[in-house]
């Protein structure tokens, strides 16, 4: 599959941004300065980026508690995200939401979500908007293997089929819901679940950007063309604990080390594009350096940003009252 240079560069940059953002949060969280719960997306970058590479600001996504990657891939700025995670007034949600609630509706980013399975029904609604308003948009729900067991998710698969919505259900299967393995918690297969609803099904290796890009392209094209909803099953793995502070006692020793060594989407991307001289290593090095600066700047700015003010407490509960 031929992918244009600018898409390759943009995608690499996006994946690198997610990686550095998350690795940096891991370090900063350990200092105790970051409040609340933080769930890192490291290791899963190719999924968010491979899917969102096919989307525009007209299209809508709904994310999860592990949402930083989806936000960055959909174009939310790292400055506003970092400030939000630090609980600052300059954050995308003015410090009201934090890591689990980063949202920017102007970019079609319907929010990370603290409620597992909260996204799929919302995406049925977003897809309905696209359909009724006839704006050509599609709506994409990212949800985990754990979330695939929520009634809300299963009902949404059915509703989307019944209403023939331009919806894409991206099941990010990292093998765990918190400390419990998918092999314990998920009966049957996602493929069979899709088939049960008569929904077209695509799958891919979520640690390989090119595989995700290709499968997501086909899935999204199907939905965008008005052929109804689809499921995209993305097999991947997270590199950190469920949340920061999780000692991962349920994972085998060495599991993460071998993922880092063999299933690093960034390393694999670099190898793939430089081997065949699609991109120069120096172009990727430049991106690496500039992303590093960008993340440094975001953290410094967030730490120095003003806190919310008392009046913010009661603002924005209602549009009018």
């Amino acid at each position: 599959m031929q992918i244009a240079h600018d898409i390759l560069l943009r995608s690499y940059r996006s994946m690198r941004t997610i990686r550095d953002f998350e690795e940096r949060l891991h370090v900063e969280f350990a200092t105790g300065e970051i409040p609340g719960f933080v769930h890192l997306y490291c290791g899963e970058e190719a999924s968010a980026v491979g899917v969102c590479a096919h989307l525009t600001d007209t299209d809508t996504i709904a994310s999860t508690h592990r949402g930083h990657g989806h936000c960055i891939a959909k174009g939310v700025g790292v400055d506003g995200m970092m400030a939000e995670i630090y609980g600052r007034k300059t954050g995308v949600c003015h410090g009201k939401g934090g890591s689990m609630h980063i949202a920017d509706l102007s970019l079609g980013m319907l929010g990370a979500n603290g409620i597992v399975g909260g996204g799929p029904p919302l995406i049925c609604g977003a897809a309905l908007s696209h359909k009724v308003l006839n704006d050509g948009g599609v709506a994409v729900a990212f949800y985990g293997d754990g979330a695939s067991n929520e009634g809300t998710t299963l009902e949404s698969l059915n509703l989307a089929m019944v209403w023939q919505l331009p919806a894409v259900f991206v099941c990010e299967d990292n093998g765990y819901g918190e400390a419990t393995g998918a092999s314990y918690a998920c009966a049957g297969t996602q493929k069979a679940r899709a088939a049960g609803f008569g929904m077209p099904y695509f799958d891919c290796d979520g640690t390989d950007f090119f595989a995700v890009y290709e499968a997501a392209g086909a899935a999204i094209a199907h939905a965008r063309a008005g052929n109804g909803p689809v499921m995209l099953h993305v097999q991947l793995a997270r590199w950190y604990g469920h949340f920061e502070g999780d000692a991962m006692t349920y994972r085998a020793n060495g599991e993460v080390a071998s993922l880092r060594a063999e299933h690093d989407c960034l390393k694999n991307f670099r190898q793939r594009v430089t081997e065949v001289s699609l991109l120069e290593p120096s172009a990727l090095d430049d991106i690496d350096a500039s992303v590093k600066d960008e993340i440094d700047a975001a953290v410094t700015a967030a730490k120095n940003a003003p806190l919310p003010e008392p009046a913010d407490l009661e603002a924005d509960v209602y549009v009018s009252y």
Partner: peptide, 14 residues
């Protein structure tokens, strides 16, 4: 309990 289906084979992990 936690840990069921995990690669460490530990139940009561959490």
């Amino acid at each position: 309990a936690g840990g069921q289906g995990g690669t460490a084979g530990v139940v009561d992990a959490w």
